[in-house]
Nucleic acid binder design. Structure first.
Lengths: 271, 271
DNA sequence: CACTTGAAAATTTGATCATATTCTAGACGG
DNA sequence: CCGTCTAGAATATGATCAAATTTTCAAGTG
């Protein structure tokens, strides 16, 4: 059972078992009080240093509903929550020490992104995609990712390429070590970086949202298969990128996406 | 205190001028009380008959946050709100007689769908798409709509085709009469019906969401240009559909989408 | 007698609101 | 023109009520 309070960002890892918010110990875990909650990236990965490091500038209160949203988003994105798992408002409230309204707002947002599912009877849970959902996701990603990759290639700076390369290195290590969690995060980071480079906010938002729909399943599948034969077509893509060849970059990403998604589909059909 | 209850559905027509909720007459308009607010379509068009028609079955309370969401959604979708217009929580609260929490939830949902924009300083407004946004929307719609149309064609029943045809007739009449409001609604209805036929919930949700992003602009453009030279490539599409030719249906829809969006882009650039 | 079934009580959770607190933008005075 | 102040708008909480789920318990059935 959880014992410590790491600030909101770190603490939700403990869930993942059972109905969120019910069968866990009720720690006096608390969201940062108003003076502690400070600026953080809108995007994803939380910094490891929540200390009193908020130097001077850029100090901006980050609203609680935003914090809750981000955390919940990551839990789903990286499969910390399993498909079918119920997510209750009250659970989150007591788990996070936040009020109902912000929790509610976060849940609505995630629901409208397809990351959570409204069950009809006022309840919300993590969706369990079926075969046809996966098929739709393949179509959607296949349509969007190559376009984004091509745009990224056209805008790529040396700096961008270096960062991508670093991510890919960590990705390789994670695969070698069989570290599923890191694999998932770095793999996402790789694509997210490409999105960022594409400088196309709308397309990015859509493509990014798709991850939420298969994140939980991806985790389950990887957990069963291990990381060994996971796809990493990124090498060819990096070559194309360095060569400044947008078409080839797009094609490489398409292959990566299709292979990864097909693998997931097959793994899910097996059960 | 409120005197009549029309059900939330009918009442918001009053806005559309100025900052929502501020400079309007304060109708004593009120959200349905708990026992009055009853089941309605999750989708779009509200039935005209809110009377005590909730016969026996299917009587289900529709949550206020849901009602607020739907209304706000339609206001945006059909250009009742202009780009740049601020949308305030308090405004909606006093206009609708709803509490803050449900209004808040509705706004969060719409924000995460791109229908509203968070301005950084706790304010929310209807976004004003720039040229590059439009370009992205074209790419996205061009990728999704033909796919959906092809799927629709494969599933089409005689009944479906008849309904589509009726919608298209009303569309023609609206164009002839120069009735922009009806044009917008029927045009949307046409595509929405296709989505429904495609039976692909995820792709549909994405494609449907895009309408929210250009709805307000579309209204502005149509208002300036009149309805005369608006696109309606639906005839060719209907032929293809009746012939059961999915490819041709997809192509026709692609033309329709591209032409419509390009026209909007040009009209917007003119100013 | 074991087992299913059913209905009502008890408990958990969701929905909504009223209220307190924190921010922001714009007015006002220097 | 710039800093200060103030009205009002947003954020966040906890209370309250309604709905749904679970539990309880006993009657009915094979």
């Amino acid at each position: 059972m959880p014992e410590r309070n790491f600030g909101v960002i770190n603490l939700i890892k403990f869930w993942r078992y059972g109905n969120i918010g019910l069968h866990q110990a009720r720690e006096n875990v608390q969201l940062g009080t108003h003076n502690e909650a400070r600026f953080a990236q809108m995007t994803s990965t939380a910094r490891a240093e929540p200390g009193p490091t908020y130097a001077d500038e850029n100090i901006q209160r980050i609203p609680i509903h935003q914090q809750v949203y981000q955390q919940l988003r990551e839990l789903i994105l990286f499969g910390e929550l399993t498909p079918g798992q119920p997510v209750t408002i009250q659970g989150l409230v007591s788990e996070l020490g936040a009020g109902m309204t912000p929790v509610r707002e976060a849940i609505r947002r995630l629901t409208s992104e397809g990351a959570l599912e409204f069950q009809g009877n006022r309840r919300v849970c993590v969706p369990t995609p079926d075969a046809s959902s996966i098929e739709e996701l393949i179509v959607a990603r296949r349509a969007l990712e190559p376009e984004l990759a091509a745009r990224a290639a056209r805008n790529a700076t040396a700096q961008d390429i270096r960062i991508l390369n670093e991510i890919d290195l960590r990705l390789d290590q994670a695969i070698a070590k069989g570290d599923v969690g890191t694999y998932l995060r770095e793999n996402y980071a790789f694509h997210a970086k490409l999105y960022e480079m594409a400088k196309s906010p709308i397309l990015t938002e859509i493509a990014d949202g798709l991850w939420l729909r298969f994140g939980p399943s991806l985790r389950v599948v990887c957990g069963r298969m291990g990381t060994q034969n996971l796809p990493d077509q990124h090498k060819e893509m990096m070559d194309a990128l360095r060569a400044g060849d947008a078409e080839r970059t797009a094609k490489a990403i398409e292959d990566d996406v299709v292979q990864g998604m097909e693998q997931m589909r097959q793994a899910m059909e097996m059960r």
